[in-house]
Amino acid sequence: MKIIKQNILSLLFVFTFLLLPVIKIMAQEDTAAGTPVVKLHYYNNNNSIQYVILESSLKKNKVFTPQKNKSYALFLDQSTPENLIGNILTDNEGKAKVFVPPSLKAAWDAAGTHNFIVKEGEEEIISDYAITKSMLTIDTASEDGVRTITVTAMKWEKNKWIPASDVEMKIGIERQASILSAGTTETYTTDSAGKATVELKRDSLPGDVNGNYTLAARVEDNDLFGNILVEKNVPWGVPTTIDTNFFNIRALWTTRFKTPYWLLFMAYSIVIGIWGTLIYLIVQMVKIAKMGKTP
């Protein structure tokens, strides 16, 4: 028994050893060609604009390279001509953006969950990207100096809007390129009523000239709902005052009418001094010329 076991082990070892180059060659072939990776991202901004971004790349040696100028066809629910959302071409970053056209409104309204299908030529490369229709609303309250933001997430199911629980999202104030969290944690999750409430902890944030800034709630890459964003303007910021006096002083950065006196004095002194001398020399030249013409 022991001998048999030893023989099996030896055989396995030899087999594995012989197989290694084959596995290596296969891996190399895979690596050499690269693996195309196509992803879809659904977006719904302020419950009114729905669009899809397709991202195409080539995975090779663990590096993703964008696939430029690749064409795909995107369908809603079925890959038939009447359900065509659009023919799309990727840009330099391997991305293509397409809006759900008005011609598909009836199909869009007919169901709560939709499937996006991607075809490359005749080949269906994505057929399981399903999105459940959803919406976010944002409400604000201000009591006893305490400001709260309540975001409600709803989903369309059985022909009605029902609360969506356990939806993770960012809630905060829109800044340069992201959302500054309104409270103390990065993200918030909706409860069984589909609500997430945050107490505003950010005092004295600058707003526009009237003190307005934009509150936002964003769900990112949710398996059911995709990417959802809702925004609301509130007058909770500190009004920004534009210092117009900045351009009224005489300084190096102002217009030519506000040149500093010292610079004007220096520049014109030099220019007048040098060009004055040159004019003097021209006069000398004229004198020399006159001397030559006098008999």
Partner: peptide, 18 residues
């Protein structure tokens, strides 16, 4: 107009020096 007079040379040399 250049005649090469002493005065012309004087003015010209002065101009060149300046």
């Amino acid at each position: 107009f250049w005649k090469g007079t002493k005065e012309q040379f004087r003015l010209s040399d002065k101009a060149i020096n300046i």
